[in-house]
Amino acid sequence: MNIFRLAGDMTHLLSVLVLLLKIHTIKSCAGISLKTQELYAVVFATRYLDIFTSYISPYNTMMKLIFLGSSFSIVWYMRYHKIVRRSYDKDQDTFRPYILMLPCLILALLINEKFTFKEISTSFFLFVMWTFSLYLEAVAILPQLVMLQRTRNIDNLTGQYVFLLGAYRALYILNWIYRYFTEEHFVHWITWISGLVQTLLYADFFYYYFQSWKNNVKLQLPA
């Protein structure tokens, strides 16, 4: 564990808490894309399949449970909570999740660190699911970014949520650089490339977020 990775995990945790705070206290999910939240639930479900089989540390297990619990409860709130669901604007949230999930699944079958298609074993299945979750996480924010461009006035909590979500993966990139130089044979191209793509997708959001902070004006993304 290094400072970049810890900062990344804490930023990720904070982003989830900001979103839960918004939904739980003001009982509103205005401006939040349910599609992105569902994709994130799938990301965590497919990434943490081995939560009970491969134990790393108390911290690792606790964080996995928090991310699984929070992502599924956010989806539950937005779908079934009688007050929250009323503030969900499904006409603005039109991105079709399958056009993201299918290519990621095919890509995970073709490009993963095992490459051996022949041994259809559980470990191969877990590996493909884990790789799928990496690719899916890289693009999971797209429905939310599209929705932000359609929602004229983005409220502060939503802006902070997206900013923290983007910042966490940027910190992970610093973590990978640090681990590359401090641990021998720590090379994971698949993780690095998908993490880089993920962070680059936030580039224009970061730009407008910074501009709105610097000029102290409301955050707005150009349509």
């Binding site: 995990d9 990720h12 081995d50 790393i56 690792n60 964080m63 044979h185 720590f186 993780t191």
Partner: peptide, 10 residues
């Protein structure tokens, strides 16, 4: 063992 360290991150 190498795979392990790939999955030691969240």
């Amino acid at each position: 063992e190498k795979e392990k360290d790939a999955h030691d991150e969240l």
